[in-house]
Design a binder for these strands. Structure first.
Lengths: 186, 186
DNA sequence: GCAGGGTCTGACCGATCGTGCAGTACGCTC
DNA sequence: GAGCGTACTGCACGATCGGTCAGACCCTGC
């Protein structure tokens, strides 16, 4: 992992999140990182490889989150929800890239892998036949939580600071998903 | 409203929803509509004007929905939620464009107008001070519902048909938002 | 001093982008 | 048939896109 690659990945992540993969140019990414366009293509074989390097670090944590999920009992469920919120905050830009612009990127391996993980979450939420409606309620809550983070970046003029928003989202998500839980103000 | 403009708007909406504004080229939009690239710029002054013409029709219904919203009593709330879901289905592609790719389009008038409407919804949900948490729960439910539609287009291999999904989303949204309501299976 | 690898850059390429413009085919009215 | 407006197209433009390549500038080991 060369030294100059890290700021390029950070700049690429910012640009991809802001204007999408197609909208971001290697030139602007290079300018953002304070390097030349040629340097980008020295560190990464192509623009697509740069996207891969930027998004891939988020895959393993998400995979681990899914693998360790135990949604049978309320405690396991609550742990899953908390870890899900933490994941969203820890990989905020990656989430924005995939959620906001991912539909245009089908066919790119790293995006397809993320899509596969999303499908695994979907299966996770539908353990038995016939609970279609519960799965949708679950999906709305999860997707809504993810989107609130995107929205916070997009419409957030004077939004809540993260250390307030995070426990609040955790609490709201638990309330929406868990069966008998009632709200306890954050 | 010239005749040849309508298929161009339809094609543009499909392209913008699929690959984003930056990712869609006038050439592909023209091909999709069965016309030449020059024809696109005959009917619309620029690519941005085409986006405006494609998205603007969704603004007035959304505005009317917000104006007529009465969230004080449960009946008014339920009516608002039902109309919100209907709006999402009636202007599906426009919603996908704005939700998925809108963050890259700030500065374009029609997008800024939509952002203003979103902010009005946000204010609608926070009638009094201190109910920050309720507003977030509300926002998660609304955003999640909108995103489920986007997700249905994106990950939907063998998804539910619309006439099943629509009442189900309506029911789920009511359950998530309304205080004392319990689920009645669709 | 010098060779070599890692890092970075400017010049350049072909393709495609959005856009401007001259021109063409059709239909309508006098 | 002359004149005109509408719908549409082909062609060319400057800019920018992702990508290639030959070097220049380090730093380290000999």
């Amino acid at each position: 992992m060369p030294s100059g690659a890290a700021p390029l990945i950070a700049a690429a992540l910012r640009q991809f999140a802001a204007v999408g993969f197609e909208g971001a140019s290697l030139q602007r990414i290079a300018d953002d990182a304070g390097l030349s366009k040629s340097s980008v293509l020295y560190h990464f074989a192509s623009k697509e490889a740069l996207l891969d390097a930027a998004v891939r670090p988020a895959i393993e944590p998400l995979c681990a989150l899914i693998d360790s999920a135990d949604l049978e009992n309320p405690a396991g469920m609550e742990a899953f929800l908390a870890q899900f919120v933490d994941f969203l905050f820890d990989h905020r830009l990656e989430v924005v890239v995939v959620v906001s612009h991912g539909s245009a990127l089908r066919g790119i391996p790293v995006i397809d892998e993320v899509d596969g993980l999303v499908r695994r979450v979907e299966e996770l939420l539908r353990p038995e036949q016939g609970s279609e409606r519960d799965a949708i309620r679950f999906g709305v809550a999860l997707a809504g939580t993810a989107f609130m983070l995107v929205a916070a970046d997009r419409w957030g003029t004077e939004r809540l600071p993260d250390d307030v928003l995070r426990p609040m989202l955790r609490s709201v998500l638990a309330e929406l998903v868990l069966p008998g839980a009632t709200a306890q103000p954050a």
